[in-house]
Simulated assay, not measured.
Amino acid sequence: MASSPEDGGRSKAAPAGGEEVTETETGTEILADDTPVDLSDLRWADAPAFILFWVLAFVVFLQFFTRYILNDSLGWTEEIARYLLVCVAFVGAIMAVRKNSHISVEFFYRYLPYKARRWLITLVDLSRIVFFIAMTVICIKLANKTNQKMASIEVSKAVIYWIVAAAFVAMTFYSLRVAQRHWKAKATSPSPEDSHAQVMD
């Protein structure tokens, strides 16, 4: 796009994705996106993941500060940060299950006939529910058998397994709700295209 003398040799391209791109003589400047973040899909059930994340961030910062600024690292921060990372991963997965936003391969799915897609969705839903139930049982068994304490603090490692088990219980619950939405979409959609749009939402 040609520039004009009034804009000082600059020309602005059309915004893409909320970002404003400005071309200058020295190169291209990309201005920050000022579009407000949409938080309407957040629920109170997502709060534990955010709390654990910020506790993890604080512990990691504390480890960095004491090691590199004070030259006297706190020994428990490394181990606790590792366990907190595990908890953040599993508790955060609850949010992904609730939104049905886990990574999935849809390439072959889109080329299947409508009835085959319906059966495949049902199979995926049932497999996911069975998997989460099985992992819940395994975590509970591990928690009951774990008597070892953490190396840095006097807390049983079973606490980690109980947190993961609770996360799998929540994932099982939300998987059942996702499956229910899929079945409702199958029953109420007037056309295969509408049903596909609701199921993949």
Rank of each mutant, 00 (worst) to 15 (best):
K99G: 07
D194G: 06
E78Y: 11
L74K: 05
C139F: 10
F61C: 03
V60K: 14
A47L: 15
A32E: 05
F65Q: 13
A81K: 07
K141M: 11
F173C: 13
I80Q: 05
V178C: 03
K186Q: 13
K12Y: 14
S11D: 07
L62G: 00
A13E: 15
H102P: 09
S189L: 09
L85D: 09
A185V: 01
P5E: 13
Y174S: 02
A89D: 12
S11H: 10
K141W: 02
F50Q: 03
L123F: 06
D72V: 06
V37R: 12
A170R: 03
V155M: 10
E29N: 11
V97S: 06
M171Q: 01
V130Y: 00
E6L: 09
G8Q: 14
R10G: 07
W54A: 12
W44Y: 14
S104H: 02
F107S: 13
I69S: 05
M171E: 02
D201H: 09
A166Y: 04
D194Y: 14
E20N: 05
A57P: 07
N147V: 03
V91F: 08
S189E: 10
Q63C: 10
A170H: 04
H182E: 12
N71L: 10
R43T: 13
V105G: 07
K12T: 14
T24L: 09
S191W: 02
A96C: 09
L142M: 11
S11T: 03
G8M: 09
K99S: 15
N100H: 00
R181N: 08
W54L: 14
W44R: 08
G17Y: 04
A2G: 03
R181C: 02
C87F: 00
L56S: 00
E78I: 00
D125L: 06
S156L: 04
S152N: 13
S156K: 15
V60I: 10
L31G: 14
M135L: 15
S73C: 06
Q198K: 14
V124P: 04
P36Q: 06
T77C: 14
Y109W: 00
S101D: 07
I103N: 03
T146A: 07
G92F: 02
G92N: 01
V55G: 06
L176R: 07
D7P: 04
L31C: 04
N100Y: 01
L85F: 13
N144G: 04
R82G: 01
A151P: 06
F50T: 01
I80Y: 01
C139Q: 06
A166S: 10
I153N: 02
T122M: 01
V155P: 05
A165I: 08
